[in-house]
Design a protein around this nucleic acid. Structure first.
Lengths: 215, 215
DNA sequence: TAGATTGTTAATCGATTAACAATC
DNA sequence: TAGATTGTTAATCGATTAACAATC
């Protein structure tokens, strides 16, 4: 797997391939051609073949792709063959909702801890996971081999906490705060800006009828 | 405002401009050049000028952009000068978290109703908003001038509900279910696929060191 | 074998960046 | 006015699509 220089666009499409292949697997489809898959996914067959060939030749001429094999391989590319420990920082509504969300665990993302800046929440627990104080965070990350920190706190706090995380072994931040964190490159930041998403929905609602690229 | 054929890439950047301009406004910055803004946002000044000029000339040679004016204008482009009524369908953890999230209201997105497929939740209420049964949905949409439906239900249910929404005046769906809804083009779908987002974070964590486009 | 479909190269398309004349 | 900075055209870059030889 000697891939190199994969574009963001391709990376964003991988989970979608993974999802469709998982569905096919559930429906006991054994093999699929790029052409069939392209129709289901509403993309071009060419794009599928190009995307996959960034990572190696998973198909067979005249046959197509073996669904189970391709699903497994994309899973490996996405790092789903290993578990990833994470903590949630911010035990508000969204943090709690994510903590209760069990599907992540099925994919190998294991919640190990829950933290909050509000010390009064200490002692409470969600799904059996106690809410801890922030001053325990650094040691907790070290002791529990935490790879990912999920930030579900207001933006001002998020910037503070992110700066603090720089000194730890954290590899990635899943950032739900409405701000762009400026961090050293070795810490990967994946943003989920819900209000940005809602605003772009609003834009598209308001500007419908005009010719859109996907029309 | 005679814009036409705006690319998805540009649309996705608009909320980010709006956010940065809002921050500048809070800090009482009166004017900003594309060059200054580009440094803060980590994009090229050229891109900012190109993006904005899709919608008209908001700047002034030798001066730059008036922060307050540009903020307002982008707000209008995003449809934030009007309110938008929405319902949340699915009163589980995520649905409840979104219902409790007050920032949407500040932007003019008003939660009018909360629905769940589980009839046993009827009678409960979140933030004073009663959870309603699905069979009330269609009339509720009509009576309350609902523009947006937020889907926070499992994928199988989401497909069903989305099909049902086709017969209503709903303009857009904010879809948190892990599936791509196939709907007529006049209904705008904005997806928030959290597990896709987490997987692409996982990919990037695992493939760090390789040259990334943004490096 | 013949038919199907990949992997991959080449062509096209679109988005980003650079450059600069216009102008405040 | 001189300096600064936009709006916009042109150049570049990258991503998508098309085409087809390789091959199962």
């Amino acid at each position: 797997m000697e891939e190199r220089n994969i574009s963001q666009a391709v990376i964003r499409r991988l989970p979608r391939y993974y999802r469709y292949l998982g569905d096919l697997l559930e429906n006991e489809v054994e093999r699929i051609s790029s052409n069939d898959l392209s129709k289901r996914m509403n993309v071009t067959a060419s794009q599928i073949r190009q995307d996959l060939n960034n990572f190696g030749g998973f198909g067979q001429q005249g046959y197509g792709y073996n669904v189970k094999y391709l699903h497994t391989e994309i899973g490996k590319i996405l790092g789903l063959d290993n578990t990833h420990n994470f903590v949630i920082i911010g035990a508000g509504n969204l943090g709690q909702a994510l903590a209760k969300y069990v599907s992540f665990e099925k994919r190998g993302f294991i919640i190990k801890g829950l933290f909050d800046v509000n010390p009064r929440l200490e002692g409470m627990s969600i799904r059996g996971i106690p809410i801890r104080k922030m001053d325990e965070l650094k040691n907790f990350i070290k002791d529990n081999n935490i790879e990912i920190a999920v930030l579900t706190i207001p933006k001002e706090k998020a910037v503070e906490v992110a700066d603090m995380l720089v000194d730890t072994k954290i590899k990635g931040i899943w950032n739900f705060a409405h701000t762009d964190l400026k961090l050293p490159k070795h810490i990967i930041v994946e943003n989920v800006h819900l209000s940005d998403s809602l605003m772009s929905l609003s834009y598209r609602i308001g500007h419908q009828g005009r010719k859109m690229p996907q029309d």
